[in-house]
Write a protein that binds this DNA or RNA. Structure first.
Length: 328
DNA sequence: AAGCTCTCCAACCGCGTTTAC
DNA sequence: GGTAAACGCGGTTGGAGAGCT
């Protein structure tokens, strides 16, 4: 049985917003705020729109400080790295890119960035750069110089291993947004050394050792959510962290970091891990996109592969991953 | 110039989660 | 604790504009 519609579909306007509607919505919110009730807002604002439509318009277009236009190489790298590690969790990724919305990033990924990656890993498109075979999943990760952060095979989600170092969740301080020094996406120059360097760089940028807790992310992040729990990933105290120790903890108690740990890392990792290691490889993925046959992947499965490689890169089992051959 | 295809992205939709009662 | 309403997210769609033939 389907759920009841959020509004009377027949009486609400759909399609592109007119400048007049934008003005009405913006003026109303500037004056009164959202009031915490998007459903009632359109009527109050004199708009013949569904509340969800108003919310989306505000979050993705009218909200202050929205950044439109070209993505920088740094932004590319952040998106690629986070996508590889947490998959299509656009709101979390957006939280790392001030001014960008999840919708923007999602569109950018689907229309440009994914293709950019395809160009990098397809031998035909960059003859001469053959350090990695295009049919290996690990080559995707390597081609991208994606960070590989390994969750320690213990029950604690507070520590992660990258290279020879172990990183712990950091409490009570802010860090800079994720940034990477090199831009392999622009020069197609792949090397193992830079992969390792990048992995280390990722960990050093995002996980700092302090008080046995690890901090991920930055202040002043901005996503499509208007102050929602994942709008910022910062300032997670030890006590806050303890609050989410149980599965039943409400989302409002969680910060973005906690969401990241429990959904982005822990939940996905548990799909991959069993026996405390990589003895078994689950074909399950968060969105259930894994096929049964590792050799069945086509072009459009690539981001699934990357996404999983990532589940994946928190416990990056090169041998297992290498078995998953792609054909396209 | 016309018709077709492709690309981009704003907006919609469905559903899981959270909140309020 | 149960239920319905509302929120928020991610996947998908559709239309406008650009590019090509």
């Amino acid at each position: 049985m389907g759920r009841a519609p959020c509004c009377d579909k027949a009486s609400v306007k759909k399609g592109p917003w007119s400048p007049e509607e934008d003005t009405k919505l913006k003026e109303y919110i500037d004056k009164h705020g959202t009031g915490g009730n998007w459903i009632a807002l359109p009527q109050k604002a004199g708009l013949k729109r569904c509340g969800k439509s108003c919310r989306l318009r505000w979050l993705n277009y009218l909200r202050p400080n929205i950044k439109h236009g070209e993505f920088s190489e740094d932004e590319d790298r952040i998106i690629c790295s986070l996508y590889a590690n947490i998959g299509s969790r656009w709101s979390i990724i957006a939280a790392q890119l001030p001014g960008r919305t999840d919708n923007d990033i999602k569109n950018y990924w689907n229309t440009k960035l994914k293709r950019k990656l395809m160009g990098m890993i397809n031998p035909a498109s960059h003859a001469g750069h053959h350090h990695y075979q295009a049919n290996s999943l690990s080559s995707l990760v390597q081609a991208w110089e994606l960070p590989s952060v390994t969750q320690l095979p213990c029950s604690s989600p507070t520590s992660y291993k990258c290279g020879n170092n172990t990183y712990y969740r950091l409490a009570g301080s802010s860090t800079e947004p994720i940034s990477f020094s090199s831009s392999p996406l622009s020069n197609n120059s792949f090397s193992s050394a830079s992969v390792l360097q990048s992995q280390e760089s990722f960990a050093q940028h995002n996980y700092q050792v302090k008080e046995s807790l690890l901090m991920f992310g930055s202040e002043a992040s901005c996503s499509s959510s208007d102050g929602s729990y994942n709008n910022q990933i910062n300032h997670v105290t030890e006590s806050e962290y303890e609050n989410v120790g149980g599965r039943g903890t409400s989302k409002s108690e969680q910060t973005g970091l906690q969401e990241y740990f429990y959904n982005g890392i822990e939940d996905e990792q548990k799909l991959v891990l069993s026996n405390g290691g990589a003895e078994e490889w689950s074909h399950e993925k968060r969105n259930g996109l894994w096929g049964d046959n590792p050799s069945d992947y086509g072009l459009e499965e690539i981001n699934q592969l990357i996404s999983s490689s990532s589940c994946n890169s928190f416990l990056f089992d090169e041998n297992k991953i290498a078995e998953r051959t792609m054909y396209y």
